[in-house]
């Protein structure tokens, strides 16, 4: 039997690529925007693109937020992707401050605008968003990132893999028990990304 995954549709971007990648690694995918359906899931993938704002506020305060917390508290495997990972944390600086699901300790911050590519005075300014392929440590694998905000956690034991952009070292993946998150887009990270998704699907781990 293929592993059944509920792919949460919460109006935070296109789900097709994630669905397609999950199917490729052997999952049986059910896309749902129904909090009741999500609440009964045995395995959840929660993707998101873009930023904290009115849409995430409605989600966090609403029935879907409650359903996601229920899955996590019950101990069923949960994977947040990009904004979906950031939403696991307490709060974002975006747009004057929006709350997350507060499952994990930490804040979501914007990359500083004045980071430089080197120490020389004429070194180029680093671009924001952090967009493209970066390696993660300690594995050295490359994944595709597209984000202007990153997680700053007060608990480094949450972090499985780190990524560095300019002067900022931030979590590329996090895990705590049944809860996993990745800042990169595994569905856009070719073989590395598919391997990451397959580990989650097969083992409920990443």
């Amino acid at each position: 039997m293929p592993r059944e995954v509920i792919l949460v549709d919460s109006q935070l971007g296109n789900l097709d690529s994630v669905e397609h990648a999950l199917i490729q690694v052997g999952a049986s995918v059910i896309v749902s925007s129904d909090p009741d359906r999500v609440a009964t899931a045995r395995m959840v993938v929660f993707p998101g693109q873009g930023s904290f704002g009115p849409t995430t506020r409605a989600l966090v305060d609403g029935a879907m937020g409650a359903a996601l917390r229920m899955v996590i508290e019950r101990g069923d495997p949960f994977l947040g992707i990009c904004l979906g990972m950031q939403l696991l944390f307490e709060q974002s600086d975006e747009g004057g401050g929006f709350d997350g699901l507060k499952v994990l300790p930490g804040r979501v911050r914007r990359f500083p605008a004045d980071m430089r590519a080197g120490d020389e005075p004429d070194a180029a300014r680093l671009k924001i968003p952090h967009m493209g392929w970066s390696d993660v440590q300690p594995t050295g694998e490359h994944f595709y990132f597209a984000h202007s905000y990153y997680v700053e956690t007060t608990d480094p034991s949450l972090v499985m893999w780190w990524c560095r952009y300019g002067s900022v070292e931030f979590p590329a993946t996090i895990s705590r028990g049944n809860v996993f998150g990745c800042q990169f887009h595994p569905e856009k990270s070719q073989w590395s990304g598919l391997r990451f998704l397959r580990s989650f699907i097969l083992g409920g781990r990443a």
């Binding site: 199917i23 490729q24 690694v25 052997g26 392929w133 490359h142 070719q190 073989w191 590395s192 598919l194 391997r195 397959r198």
Partner: peptide, 14 residues
């Protein structure tokens, strides 16, 4: 640049 990686057996379906 991202090093070129030859595909490995990751696809279960398709």
């Amino acid at each position: 640049v991202r090093p070129h990686e030859a595909p490995r057996g990751v696809l279960i379906t398709g």
